[in-house]
Design a protein around this nucleic acid. Sequence first.
DNA 1: TTCCCCTATGAACCCCTGTTCAGATGGTGG
DNA 2: CCACCATCTGAACAGGGGTTCATAGGGGAA
Lengths: 140, 140
Amino acid sequence: MGAVVANSHSINTQPPNTQPTPGTDAPACDESLVHLDNVRQVQPEVLSTEQAQRMAEFFSALSDPHRLKLLSALAQQELCVCDLAAAVKMGESAVSHQLRVLRSQRLVKYRRQGRNVYYGLADGHIMALYREVAEHLEEG
Amino acid sequence: MGAVVANSHSINTQPPNTQPTPGTDAPACDESLVHLDNVRQVQPEVLSTEQAQRMAEFFSALSDPHRLKLLSALAQQELCVCDLAAAVKMGESAVSHQLRVLRSQRLVKYRRQGRNVYYGLADGHIMALYREVAEHLEEG
DNA sequence: TTCCCCTATGAACCCCTGTTCAGATGGTGG
DNA sequence: CCACCATCTGAACAGGGGTTCATAGGGGAA
């Protein structure tokens, strides 16, 4: 999808070759013919396995309600682990485990002060991302 | 996080009350005291369980490499199931199952033509979302 | 230095999700 | 109207992720 992002203006939502096999009225996928022209055109733009894997791992980090609650708390202000646990009503061990996941995708940053570790959102992309998703969900 | 999105300008990345318990130099979370002021301040802004659940389901739909490949193909042009299967090298049944997940989160729309069903991206939010994530990943 | 507390890690268990195979549905072309 | 073919659905199996309990690490305070 890197390619997609690069030239996102080239996206068309219109029907593709609405006449798949020119000269034939049958829009069928029959046999192994499929719509070879479309497939060949699209295939090189498909996300590579590595890219897809990496992006999937990123979204996986966001695909848990508890982690989203943690992020929504951190969006307000920096907090240490025990405060986070209290704020989202989770065990401290569970919080630590989830924070590890968030760290691995660089969704949060952390900072040691005294005997505590304070966590916060990593950067602005995260917030922009939430805004997009929130809009999408509100449109439901 | 709805609240967070609503007033995202109110986010501070600065340390919270860097002196958690006024009059005490110990920034400790000891006992059940934690940093009550911080917790009470943040807690009402934490995503509700229902909101978090809904958003988690949305991200879950994006947390699979195969589904991301499908989306990257659909970002190029509308395609029918069998073409998608060929483009991402998956079985048609598996593609159909995954498209069901994408439909359930309204990530794709579909349209019947002849004996085929053409799928495409649902709306522009999806693309904007990809752009944010792609930037985030590239910054790694 | 020594103890203590916050945080992190490891392992076991369970649930949830993706895949595959088989069969059902339903619009289409003859 | 009938048979066909693309798509969808359902069930069974396998794998990955989350929670919990128990334990280890690592600063700070005295």
